[in-house]
């Protein structure tokens, strides 16, 4: 646990030591801000709906950008050899890096609370669905990050890591958009694998254990795959 925190602090600090964190947060806020203000001033409806609808799309690009360097950079510079010969477990390293990236997206999401607060002055807001949406977004970014970290552990090239994680995330995200072309038996399975389907449920304010289990098990699977990928140096 202590080692996990050491990794977490170092990773989070290195996001803020480089321009990565600032660029990600600023661009994120510009895009969400535009969707927030345009819906507010053009349609005049007190809702976070538009913001919450667009964030999963922004994350499709942003999370791979945040997570692409986690292992690829260490592999390229050789520091991975230092890290893996320190008396800490592979799990500590992977989970520490995962939580640091999750904290960065969490911080970006925290800034959008400004929209919620300003809306609350203008009219009544649906607090249940807003809290649900935030939980859903965090879980969603969790699964994106675990995929991104896994992709990063496969290569020492950050661009390739970005592309691999984008393709996996995009594929899982789009699954429930292509269901109409498929037979119904297959469709229900694919729908369950789709990231967006589960987010849709949580965003309505329904915290169903099935949806939460889906996200947590997805995160678990990709963290496990990352560990295997790190161990593959020994095979």
């Amino acid at each position: 646990m202590k080692n996990l925190l050491t990794i977490f602090r170092k990773e989070l600090r290195s996001y803020f030591n480089s321009p990565v964190a600032y660029i990600v947060i600023v661009v994120f806020l510009i895009i969400t801000g535009w969707f927030f203000t345009s819906s507010l001033f053009i349609t005049g409806v007190v809702t976070m709906r538009n913001v919450f609808d667009i964030i999963p799309f922004i994350f499709l690009f942003f999370v791979p950008a945040i997570s692409m360097r986690t292992f690829a950079e260490e592999k390229k510079s050789g520091t991975i050899e230092l890290l893996l010969t320190k008396p800490i477990t592979d799990t500590d390293i992977v989970v520490g890096k995962f939580l640091a990236a999750l904290a960065l997206t969490g911080i970006a999401l925290l800034f959008t609370l400004i929209y919620v607060i300003s809306l609350s002055f203008l009219g009544s807001i649906d607090l249940g669905s807003i809290i649900g949406s935030y939980i859903g977004l965090l879980l969603m970014s969790g699964i994106y990050i675990s995929i991104g970290i896994f992709a990063s552990s496969l290569t020492e090239n950050q661009v390739i890591a970005f592309i691999i994680s984008f393709l996996i995330v995009f594929g899982l995200f789009m699954l429930n958009k292509v269901l109409i072309f498929l037979p119904t038996s297959l469709a229900s399975i694919l729908e369950y694998i789709s990231i967006d389907y589960h987010f849709g449920n949580i965003a309505r304010g329904i915290l169903d254990t099935r949806n939460i289990i889906y996200y947590l098990s997805g995160i678990f699977i990709f963290i496990l795959l990352t560990r295997f990928s790190l161990e593959s140096r020994k095979w």
Partner: peptide
């Protein structure tokens, strides 16, 4: 029990010396 300097001496170039040594000390428990 082991202190290791790998080939090519890999380092975190964006950290300063003190921070890096502190990080190494923490990792070494």
């Amino acid at each position: 029990k082991i202190g290791y300097l790998p080939e090519q001496n890999p380092l975190y170039l964006d950290m300063n010396v003190l921070d890096y040594l502190e990080y190494a000390a923490q990792l070494e428990s």
